[in-house]
Computed example of a mutant assay.
Amino acid sequence: MQLKTIVLAVGLMATTALTGCSTIGFSYSTASYNSVVDAGYVIPAVPRSKIPPQYLRQQVNYDGSEAPGTIIVDTGAKYLYYVLGGGKAMRYGIGVGKQGFEWHGTARVAMKREWPTWTPPREMIQRQPKLAEFRDGMDPGITNPLGARALYLFNKGGDTGYRLHGTPEWWSIGKAMSSGCIRLMNQDIMDLYNRAEVGAKVIVR
Protein backbone atom coordinates (compact mmCIF):
# COMPACT_ATOMS: atom_id res chain seq x y z
CA MET A 1 0.00 0.00 0.00
CA GLN A 2 2.83 2.36 0.83
CA LEU A 3 4.44 1.78 -2.59
CA LYS A 4 1.12 2.51 -4.33
CA THR A 5 0.79 5.73 -2.36
CA ILE A 6 4.25 6.85 -3.42
CA VAL A 7 3.55 6.05 -7.09
CA LEU A 8 0.27 7.97 -6.95
CA ALA A 9 1.98 10.99 -5.39
CA VAL A 10 4.68 11.00 -8.07
CA GLY A 11 2.01 10.77 -10.75
CA LEU A 12 0.16 13.76 -9.34
CA MET A 13 3.37 15.78 -9.16
CA ALA A 14 4.10 15.03 -12.82
CA THR A 15 0.60 16.07 -13.85
CA THR A 16 0.94 19.32 -11.94
CA ALA A 17 4.30 20.04 -13.57
CA LEU A 18 2.87 19.49 -17.06
CA THR A 19 -0.12 21.70 -16.31
CA GLY A 20 2.18 24.47 -15.14
CA CYS A 21 3.82 24.56 -18.58
CA SER A 22 0.52 25.27 -20.32
CA THR A 23 -0.40 28.73 -21.55
CA ILE A 24 -4.02 28.22 -20.66
CA GLY A 25 -5.31 26.34 -17.63
CA PHE A 26 -8.91 25.33 -17.17
CA SER A 27 -11.28 26.14 -14.33
CA TYR A 28 -14.79 25.02 -13.57
CA SER A 29 -17.52 27.33 -14.84
CA THR A 30 -20.06 28.65 -12.36
CA ALA A 31 -21.48 31.19 -14.82
CA SER A 32 -25.23 31.65 -14.79
CA TYR A 33 -27.19 31.14 -17.98
CA ASN A 34 -30.59 31.65 -16.42
CA SER A 35 -33.33 33.68 -18.08
CA VAL A 36 -32.73 37.42 -17.76
CA VAL A 37 -35.04 40.41 -18.14
CA ASP A 38 -33.10 43.31 -19.65
CA ALA A 39 -34.50 46.60 -20.92
CA GLY A 40 -37.92 44.98 -21.09
CA TYR A 41 -36.71 42.01 -23.17
CA VAL A 42 -36.82 38.48 -21.77
CA ILE A 43 -33.64 36.60 -22.67
CA PRO A 44 -34.33 32.85 -22.56
CA ALA A 45 -32.25 30.58 -20.38
CA VAL A 46 -29.48 28.62 -22.08
CA PRO A 47 -29.53 24.86 -21.36
CA ARG A 48 -26.06 24.48 -19.79
CA SER A 49 -26.17 20.70 -20.13
CA LYS A 50 -26.30 21.03 -23.91
CA ILE A 51 -23.27 23.36 -24.15
CA PRO A 52 -19.86 21.63 -24.30
CA PRO A 53 -18.27 22.58 -20.94
CA GLN A 54 -15.22 24.19 -22.54
CA TYR A 55 -17.47 26.83 -24.12
CA LEU A 56 -19.06 27.95 -20.86
CA ARG A 57 -17.85 31.28 -19.49
CA GLN A 58 -15.00 30.74 -17.03
CA GLN A 59 -11.90 32.36 -15.59
CA VAL A 60 -8.71 30.65 -16.73
CA ASN A 61 -4.98 30.98 -16.25
CA TYR A 62 -3.37 33.08 -18.98
CA ASP A 63 0.32 33.85 -19.42
CA GLY A 64 0.17 35.98 -22.57
CA SER A 65 1.90 39.36 -22.72
CA GLU A 66 -1.18 41.41 -23.67
CA ALA A 67 -2.26 44.22 -21.37
CA PRO A 68 -5.33 43.86 -19.15
CA GLY A 69 -8.46 44.85 -21.05
CA THR A 70 -7.24 43.33 -24.33
CA ILE A 71 -9.61 40.99 -26.15
CA ILE A 72 -8.08 37.95 -27.87
CA VAL A 73 -10.17 35.95 -30.34
CA ASP A 74 -8.92 32.45 -31.11
CA THR A 75 -11.01 31.50 -34.14
CA GLY A 76 -9.49 28.02 -34.38
CA ALA A 77 -10.29 26.98 -30.82
CA LYS A 78 -13.56 29.00 -30.82
CA TYR A 79 -12.58 30.98 -27.71
CA LEU A 80 -12.59 34.67 -26.83
CA TYR A 81 -10.35 35.83 -23.98
CA TYR A 82 -10.72 39.04 -22.03
CA VAL A 83 -7.37 39.63 -20.34
CA LEU A 84 -7.83 40.36 -16.64
CA GLY A 85 -4.20 40.69 -15.64
CA GLY A 86 -2.40 38.85 -12.86
CA GLY A 87 -2.06 35.77 -15.07
CA LYS A 88 -5.83 35.43 -15.52
CA ALA A 89 -8.36 35.87 -18.32
CA MET A 90 -12.09 35.42 -18.72
CA ARG A 91 -12.78 32.94 -21.48
CA TYR A 92 -15.97 32.68 -23.53
CA GLY A 93 -17.10 30.18 -26.14
CA ILE A 94 -17.80 31.76 -29.52
CA GLY A 95 -19.19 31.10 -32.97
CA VAL A 96 -17.05 32.29 -35.89
CA GLY A 97 -17.23 32.95 -39.61
CA LYS A 98 -17.97 30.04 -41.90
CA GLN A 99 -15.55 29.08 -44.65
CA GLY A 100 -14.93 32.04 -46.94
CA PHE A 101 -15.96 34.57 -44.29
CA GLU A 102 -13.08 34.20 -41.83
CA TRP A 103 -10.92 37.17 -40.94
CA HIS A 104 -7.86 37.91 -38.84
CA GLY A 105 -6.14 41.06 -37.68
CA THR A 106 -6.12 43.79 -35.06
CA ALA A 107 -8.88 46.28 -34.35
CA ARG A 108 -10.32 48.36 -31.54
CA VAL A 109 -13.73 48.61 -29.94
CA ALA A 110 -15.01 51.91 -31.35
CA MET A 111 -18.59 51.72 -30.06
CA LYS A 112 -20.72 49.68 -27.69
CA ARG A 113 -24.47 49.32 -28.09
CA GLU A 114 -27.18 47.73 -25.99
CA TRP A 115 -29.94 46.04 -27.96
CA PRO A 116 -28.53 47.26 -31.29
CA THR A 117 -30.30 47.64 -34.59
CA TRP A 118 -29.05 45.21 -37.23
CA THR A 119 -28.58 46.35 -40.83
CA PRO A 120 -27.52 43.61 -43.25
CA PRO A 121 -24.65 44.63 -45.56
CA ARG A 122 -25.41 45.05 -49.25
CA GLU A 123 -23.39 41.94 -50.07
CA MET A 124 -25.47 39.88 -47.66
CA ILE A 125 -28.70 41.12 -49.23
CA GLN A 126 -27.37 40.13 -52.64
CA ARG A 127 -26.75 36.61 -51.32
CA GLN A 128 -30.06 36.48 -49.47
CA PRO A 129 -32.60 38.77 -51.24
CA LYS A 130 -35.24 38.12 -48.58
CA LEU A 131 -33.18 40.29 -46.21
CA ALA A 132 -33.95 43.35 -48.35
CA GLU A 133 -36.83 44.18 -46.00
CA PHE A 134 -34.22 45.04 -43.37
CA ARG A 135 -32.05 47.27 -45.56
CA ASP A 136 -32.99 50.19 -43.29
CA GLY A 137 -32.38 48.14 -40.17
CA MET A 138 -34.07 45.47 -38.06
CA ASP A 139 -35.47 46.68 -34.77
CA PRO A 140 -33.82 45.43 -31.56
CA GLY A 141 -35.26 42.32 -30.00
CA ILE A 142 -34.75 38.71 -29.07
CA THR A 143 -34.70 37.56 -32.72
CA ASN A 144 -32.32 40.31 -33.86
CA PRO A 145 -29.07 38.67 -35.11
CA LEU A 146 -26.93 41.03 -32.98
CA GLY A 147 -28.61 39.92 -29.80
CA ALA A 148 -28.51 41.87 -26.56
CA ARG A 149 -25.21 43.70 -27.06
CA ALA A 150 -22.71 44.54 -29.78
CA LEU A 151 -19.14 45.83 -29.80
CA TYR A 152 -18.22 47.51 -33.10
CA LEU A 153 -14.72 46.89 -34.42
CA PHE A 154 -12.77 49.57 -36.27
CA ASN A 155 -9.19 49.68 -37.55
CA LYS A 156 -7.05 52.29 -39.32
CA GLY A 157 -9.32 52.01 -42.35
CA GLY A 158 -12.45 52.71 -40.35
CA ASP A 159 -15.37 50.38 -39.70
CA THR A 160 -14.33 46.78 -40.38
CA GLY A 161 -17.97 45.74 -40.64
CA TYR A 162 -17.29 43.09 -37.99
CA ARG A 163 -18.83 42.92 -34.54
CA LEU A 164 -18.57 41.02 -31.29
CA HIS A 165 -22.23 40.42 -30.56
CA GLY A 166 -24.82 38.30 -28.87
CA THR A 167 -26.96 35.63 -30.44
CA PRO A 168 -30.12 33.77 -29.46
CA GLU A 169 -28.70 30.72 -31.29
CA TRP A 170 -26.77 29.18 -28.38
CA TRP A 171 -26.34 25.97 -30.38
CA SER A 172 -24.07 27.81 -32.84
CA ILE A 173 -21.36 28.39 -30.22
CA GLY A 174 -18.26 26.37 -31.03
CA LYS A 175 -19.12 26.29 -34.72
CA ALA A 176 -18.29 28.21 -37.89
CA MET A 177 -21.66 29.55 -39.01
CA SER A 178 -21.57 33.35 -39.16
CA SER A 179 -20.81 35.79 -41.96
CA GLY A 180 -17.59 36.82 -40.23
CA CYS A 181 -18.76 38.37 -36.97
CA ILE A 182 -17.88 36.78 -33.63
CA ARG A 183 -20.97 35.67 -31.76
CA LEU A 184 -21.42 34.88 -28.06
CA MET A 185 -24.38 33.66 -26.08
CA ASN A 186 -26.44 36.65 -24.95
CA GLN A 187 -25.57 36.09 -21.28
CA ASP A 188 -21.88 36.07 -22.23
CA ILE A 189 -21.89 39.17 -24.44
CA MET A 190 -23.60 41.04 -21.59
CA ASP A 191 -20.78 40.00 -19.27
CA LEU A 192 -18.11 40.99 -21.82
CA TYR A 193 -19.89 44.28 -22.54
CA ASN A 194 -19.67 45.24 -18.87
CA ARG A 195 -15.93 44.51 -18.80
CA ALA A 196 -14.68 45.84 -22.14
CA GLU A 197 -14.09 49.55 -22.65
CA VAL A 198 -14.36 51.66 -25.77
CA GLY A 199 -10.86 51.76 -27.24
CA ALA A 200 -10.01 48.22 -26.13
CA LYS A 201 -7.59 46.40 -28.42
CA VAL A 202 -8.98 43.33 -30.17
CA ILE A 203 -6.66 40.72 -31.68
CA VAL A 204 -8.28 38.12 -33.95
CA ARG A 205 -6.13 35.07 -34.64
Rank of each mutant, 00 (worst) to 15 (best):
S35Q: 15
A110M: 11
Q128T: 13
T5C: 06
P129Y: 02
N155I: 03
E102C: 03
Y82N: 02
T119F: 07
Q187T: 09
N194W: 01
G161H: 01
M124I: 15
F134L: 06
A176T: 11
K4G: 05
I203Q: 06
T167D: 05
V202L: 08
G87L: 02
D159Y: 00
Q99E: 14
G95R: 06
Q2L: 14
A150Y: 01
W171S: 13
E123Y: 07
M90T: 14
V96R: 02
M90E: 12
T15E: 08
G20W: 14
P53T: 14
G199N: 04
T119Y: 07
T16G: 14
A148E: 09
Q187Y: 04
G93F: 03
R195G: 05
I51E: 03
R195F: 05
A148P: 02
A200Q: 01
L184D: 03
A77G: 07
S35P: 02
I94Q: 11
S172F: 04
Y81K: 00
Q128S: 13
E169V: 11
R205P: 11
I125W: 02
V36A: 07
Q2E: 14
R195N: 06
K4I: 09
A14W: 05
A200W: 00
L84G: 00
G174S: 12
Q58Y: 01
D188K: 08
S35Y: 01
W118L: 05
H165W: 00
S172L: 07
P47G: 06
F101W: 15
T119H: 06
P116D: 08
G11H: 08
E66Q: 15
L184W: 02
Y162W: 12
I51G: 01
R135C: 04
M185G: 08
A107G: 03
W170E: 05
R127Y: 00
R149T: 10
Q128F: 08
L184P: 05
G147I: 10
P68V: 06
G161K: 00
V96Q: 05
Y28R: 13
W170A: 10
S65F: 07
R108V: 14
